[in-house]
Design a protein around this nucleic acid. Structure first.
Lengths: 237, 237
DNA sequence: GACTATAATTGGTAGAACCATTGAAAGCAA
DNA sequence: TTGCTTTCAATGGTTCTACCAATTATAGTC
């Protein structure tokens, strides 16, 4: 392995974003803080406003700042929400780098572990939110609102991930659900009779704190979902 | 829940990126393709070159295109590498939204499942690469090259993830290793005596195809690593 | 005090110009 | 012909100026 590294003629906007990222890491900039106005910042960095705007655009896409118009507007530091990660994985799915079989497999592995951990950490508020979600799912099913039903189902997994208190699992689950939404839109939503009963069994296991049982229930449900999803996909292909 | 959605006064550059993303999804644009030159594209979209450049910058940060200078340069469609996802999670770690205990916990959960799946799918080339990695780790340890040793260790996990053939797990592992690198840089690399023996046991289990055993071995090693990492972190805090 | 019109601030867009890098084509020499 | 050098055109990177559009603070009015 060579001791050299590729020469990197850094572009001006990259230098700017690096400086701001550095201040973020050193807590010299925190969420909610506002950066000076574009014209002022451009002067401080000794670059044109165009170049500065490319830097801000880059930070905005990365989810680090939010740009607001008008007086008392400007670039505000966002708190880490993970939108960039979700968008990045969605792009991979759109481009075909992540295929349906990869997505469903990852959902099984991640969903099972999320369920296991959520069962150990969930509090009463988590349980209440999950129960409300299942009630909403039942109501939507009764009214035949399939699209709404799908959204409620995704939300269940997001709620469960939040109960783990681990942001890595939270943002990963958000991304998996976003990809699943894209996927299901292409193959068409298929009503089924097994998700809702599984949810009820899962709720009981979560209440009892039976982590192994809850994980098993989730795993089996996700495997069943995988089979039907991939079957639908095979037909449309 | 309301039926309305927030009004979104779309900015020009967002319209442009949406159009290009759409062509990517419909395979009308594929990796390796080259977009027209900036001046030409600006004319086609009926926007100024500034606005078009902001759109290209956005796509570049998202990892969808690569910009090259010079004659026969331009914006080239990249194949999905997941750099944006890695960068996004790294940002979350830098900003403190993901904390060391979250990182180490996620590594245990993901690493265990990656090992299990890799054990089922690995071929001879995967095994050879992993064995070469462990040999390199031993050599680096013998020469006392701690920084190089750390890099080789991260590479082991990346190689293992690639053996799963699942891009979601691959990019996730890449991101976890990148965050770990940041983390270890701040707490200082601690040489240890248990990783290398664990690697040898793991290799044997991978060769035998003992998925459960390999997963267990990885899990125990990662938990031990977690304890020492968090202990070091507690001292520096 | 509540409402309204005004003004100031700020991000969004446009257009032209120039620089720096890159690679291909033309020219030249052996 | 072959190989090297020079030239040149294409392209991204950067700057500057001007104006538009949205937003909010502020002064003014009833």
């Amino acid at each position: 392995m060579s001791e050299f590294r590729p020469v990197a003629t850094r572009r001006a906007f990259e230098d700017i974003t690096a400086q701001i990222r550095d201040r973020l890491m050193r807590k010299s900039l925190q969420s909610g803080d506002r950066l000076p106005a574009e014209r002022q910042l451009a002067e401080q960095f000794r670059v044109s406003r165009n170049t500065l705007r490319e830097a801000l655009r880059s930070l905005e896409i990365a989810g680090l700042v939010e740009l607001k118009k008008g007086a008392s507007g400007g670039a505000f530091i966002r708190e880490g929400g993970g939108e960039a990660v979700v968008a990045g994985l969605s792009d991979l799915f759109r481009m075909g780098a992540i295929r349906p079989e990869h997505l469903t497999e990852a959902r099984i592995l991640v969903g099972t572990e999320v369920t296991r951990l959520a069962c150990k950490r969930r509090n009463k508020m988590d349980l209440a939110a999950l129960e409300a979600n299942v009630r909403a799912a039942q109501a939507a099913t009764g009214r035949g609102e399939t699209a709404r039903r799908a959204e409620i189902n995704y939300e269940f997994h997001r709620l469960l991930a939040r109960a783990t208190r681990n942001p890595v699992l939270i943002v990963l689950t958000d991304a998996l659900m976003e990809m699943t939404r894209h996927f299901v839109e292409t193959i068409g939503y298929q009503p089924n009779r097994y998700v809702l009963p599984s949810r009820r069994r899962l709720l009981a296991l979560l209440r009892d704190g039976d982590a192994a049982g809850a994980a098993k229930e989730m795993e089996q449900m996700l495997k069943r979902l995988q089979r039907s999803h991939l079957a639908s996909y095979g037909k449309t292909k």
